[in-house]
Computed example of a mutant assay.
Amino acid sequence: MDIEQIRLFISVYRARSFAAVAKELNIAPSSVSRAIASLEEKLQTRLFQRTTRRLAPTQSGEHYYQRVEILIEELELAEQEILTQNSEPFGTLRVTASTSFGQTVLAPLMKGFHAQYPKIRVELTLSDSQSNIIDEQFDLAIRHGNLSDSSFIARKLIDVRYLLVASKEYLEASCSIQAPQDIQKHRLISFSYNSFNKEWNFRRDQNTETVSISPMLTITSASAIKECIKSGFGISLLPDWIIREELKNKKLVSILDDWHISGKNFNNAIWLIYPTRTFIPAKTNAFMAYLQTKVS
């Protein structure tokens, strides 16, 4: 078994291009093509359909990738486990998170993490759309809310409480809010997601009220919503982790504090998500452990 040949096959499968892999490895495209042809001859099957415009895996290629990708990953992890037994974690760690969480929570922690783990290079990708962990080869994803994909391992980072907030200036110029239904008289700003932009739920003791909303503005970013609220545009429902400083310095005011408020689901949390595997790389474990000691 030629391990390097199989690794090359995995790279071509993911890139869907001989040229892209050759460029990444700084070798000739013909060398990549010959290596794949050699592997196909050894397996007595075609792994890719080749045209002048595209390269696509055959059914055999798909099946082979699903089997060997796990084996090569386990081999690499085993090698890394041995290499790191007597040394500190190292390597490039690819992490994806929402833009707001990355800017508000993660970015301020990077200096301290680097000081503790100077051999780990972090690539932090911030996006308000969920990246595909496997296809984009992330080591770790930080996700909000309820989890739907059971093929990944999930570790809870923090529980999240949503608060109804507005600026002091807006509240002074608007009608008072004494009960959940009163919010319908106000300008509302909401997340664009269906779990937040149709209704907000209020719970107090055994009493639960659902209030239909018609937001004047919907945004994907919690940071952007916060700025709109601070400017006096209206009121919104925001997670506690992004407005702590604003509540402390009175730039924002919390409304209906005696109610537990959320979108469709009250069980809100932030999760650390990573691919299912027997061994977790030391660099990933180090980053998760660091976050769990710093984020609250």
Rank of each mutant, 00 (worst) to 15 (best):
S176E: 11
S231K: 06
I243G: 04
S30W: 00
K111G: 09
F18I: 10
I189V: 10
S174H: 07
G145A: 14
T58I: 06
L171C: 06
N26E: 15
R277G: 15
R143H: 13
R277M: 15
I219G: 03
D182G: 08
S150R: 09
T58S: 05
A224P: 02
S60I: 06
P180D: 01
T284Y: 02
A166C: 09
Q85Y: 10
C175I: 12
K250V: 02
L217G: 02
I10G: 01
M110S: 08
I27K: 05
L217H: 07
F196V: 08
S87K: 11
N132G: 00
S131G: 12
I70V: 15
P29C: 08
M1N: 10
H186I: 02
H114Q: 10
I189W: 01
L164A: 05
E88F: 14
I243Q: 12
S129G: 04
D240C: 07
K168L: 02
Y162G: 01
A286L: 12
L171Q: 04
H260Q: 14
D128Q: 06
A141G: 14
K23T: 13
S151L: 04
Y13C: 10
E199I: 02
L43H: 11
K185L: 09
A179T: 15
L55I: 13
T220H: 03
W271T: 06
E73C: 13
Y117D: 04
H114W: 07
S221F: 08
G263F: 11
S192P: 00
L171Y: 04
A224Q: 04
L256E: 02
A115L: 11
H144I: 07
L71R: 07
S190L: 01
I10P: 05
L124Y: 03
T210P: 06
S11Q: 14
Q59K: 12
F90H: 09
L163K: 03
T99D: 14
I82F: 11
L39N: 03
E136W: 00
L71E: 13
L106N: 03
L126N: 12
A173V: 02
Q116S: 09
L247V: 01
S254L: 01
F48E: 03
A20F: 02
E245K: 13
T278C: 09
Q178L: 11
Q292P: 03
L272S: 01
L93D: 12
A166R: 07
S131P: 07
N267S: 15
I219T: 03
W271Q: 08
S100D: 04
M110P: 05
